[in-house]
């Protein structure tokens, strides 16, 4: 440190030895502020994650099994879901294209997507890209009131069947 007003050779001119206590307090302070900043950032990100979703429930009833005629496919547009009543039981396949989220339609080998031309077979397996993942299958169950219930948070394999 130099200061014009301090005459040369005075105390201030001597090279100061670092004060251990001050230095460690400074380091502790820096760590504290750093940790607080990190915590603040984490809190901000957490703040952005909604705790309550004002969107349709991910688990919902779709009516009694009897409304789905045997051997037929029913499209539930509001749920973006195809429900099959096959020979060996019920199963449901999502109509959300795994490429970029358009609704696939029945057609071609099984399903076709209008957006970028992906094609899927009857089980939702990719026949032609650009999609690389098969269409999602969701678990079906029977509620105590004999309603079919779909759970979008419970994906299942294409072997899944619900006997009802």
């Amino acid at each position: 440190m130099t200061n014009d007003r301090v005459p040369p050779g005075s105390v201030a001119e001597k090279p100061e030895r670092p004060d251990r206590v001050r230095r460690s307090m400074f380091v502790i302070g820096c760590i504290g502020i750093g940790a607080a900043t990190a915590g603040f950032l984490a809190a901000t990100v957490r703040f952005l994650v909604p705790n309550v979703l004002y969107e349709p429930s991910r688990r919902f009833g779709i009516g009694p099994p009897t409304v789905f005629p045997p051997g037929a496919v029913t499209f539930l547009p509001d749920r973006r879901l195809y429900v099959f009543n096959g020979a060996d039981g019920f199963y449901s396949i999502s109509s959300v294209c795994t490429h970029l989220g358009c609704n696939v339609k029945r057609g071609g080998p099984g399903f076709e997507c209008p957006c970028h031309g992906s094609q899927f077979d009857e089980n939702g397996q990719v026949v032609q890209g650009p999609a690389t993942k098969a269409l999602a299958w969701y678990a079906l169950s029977l509620s105590p009131h004999a309603q079919l219930v779909v759970d979008l948070d419970q994906p299942v394999n294409p072997e899944f069947r619900l006997r009802a």
Partner: peptide
């Protein structure tokens, strides 16, 4: 985070 949920909605 962008959608504020699983699907595009009010959020």
């Amino acid at each position: 985070l962008l959608l504020g949920g699983h699907v595009i909605g009010p959020m």
